[in-house]
Design a protein around this nucleic acid. Structure first.
Lengths: 118, 118
DNA sequence: AGTATATATCGACAAACGTCGAACCAGCGG
DNA sequence: CCGCTGGTTCGACGTTTGTCGATATATACT
C-alpha cells in the first residue's frame, strides 16, 4: 500500500480545498461540477436532510445516532444515510464509549453556501 | 407491501413560500425536508449543475439552450435536465421567437441559502 | 406549400439509489 | 465469560435516475 499519488478517487470522498466558486461567477468546470453535485446529492434525500438538520440543530452541536434515529426508517437505513453524509464530508463522527457522536463539518457547508452566493 | 406509509404527495412541483427554515435552527419537519431535498436534488447532478451555472453566470442573466448545450450529453438529455431544474423552481423559461430563454429563479436560491445559513 | 432549425416528448435500457432484515462487530455490565 | 445494547456491513429487492435515439411540435424562412 505504498501509493502516495494524488489520486482523484471516485470523488465525494475528499474536498481538498474550498471546493467550488460561486455558480454565478463563471461556468463551472467539469471537475468542480462533480464535487459540487456530490455535496448537493448528500442533502438531496428527505431522510438524510432531516438527519442532518437534527444534528445541526442539536444544542451541543453533536448527536448520537440513538438521539436522531426516529425518522421513520429502519436503524440500518439511518446508518447508511449517516455514512453517506460522512463520505460527502458533511459530517464528522467520533466514538465515545458506547455511542458514536456526529457533528456537522462547517467547511462543507461553507462550500455549498459559497456556491449559492454570488 | 407490509409497510403502509401515508406517502406524502408528489411534491417537488411548487414551492409555495420560502420553503424552509435554517437547517440548524430546528429539526426539519417531514414536509419541509421533502421540499428542501427536492431543491438540493435538482442540483445534485453534475450536468445539471453545470447547466445551471452557465445560466447563472451568463452576463445577460438569461441563456437559450443553444447557448449552453455543449456539456457532453445529447440534446434530449439537456432538455430533460432543464425541465427538472424548471420543475424544481430553480429556473424560469420564456419563449421568444425561435428560442427559449432560461433564467435563474432567485427565490429558490434564497431558500437554499437560508437553509444552509445558521 | 415545404424545408430547416430549436426544443420537447417518448420508449427503452443500464446503473444508481433507498430500503429492509439478518448477520456482524464493539464496548459495557453482570 | 456471556449476554445486552449501539452501530455497521451485507445481500437482496423494487424504484428512480440519467442517458440515448427516434419522433413530435413549434417557429422561421423560402
Amino acid at each position: 500500500m505504498s501509493n502516495n499519488q494524488p489520486q482523484v478517487l471516485p470523488v465525494a470522498e475528499e474536498q481538498a480545498g474550498p471546493c467550488c466558486p460561486p455558480l454565478a461567477s463563471a461556468p463551472l468546470s467539469e471537475a468542480d461540477a462533480l464535487q459540487g453535485a456530490a455535496m448537493f446529492k448528500a442533502l438531496s434525500d428527505p431522510v438524510r436532510l432531516r438527519l442532518f438538520s437534527r444534528i445541526a440543530a442539536h444544542p451541543s452541536g453533536e448527536a448520537c445516532v440513538c438521539d436522531i434515529s426516529d425518522v421513520g426508517v429502519s436503524q440500518s437505513t439511518v446508518s447508511h444515510h449517516l455514512k453517506k453524509l460522512r463520505d460527502a464530508g458533511l459530517l464528522t463522527s467520533e466514538r465515545r464509549g458506547t455511542w458514536i457522536y456526529h457533528r456537522v463539518a462547517p467547511a462543507a457547508l461553507d462550500g455549498m453556501r459559497r456556491m449559492l452566493d454570488g
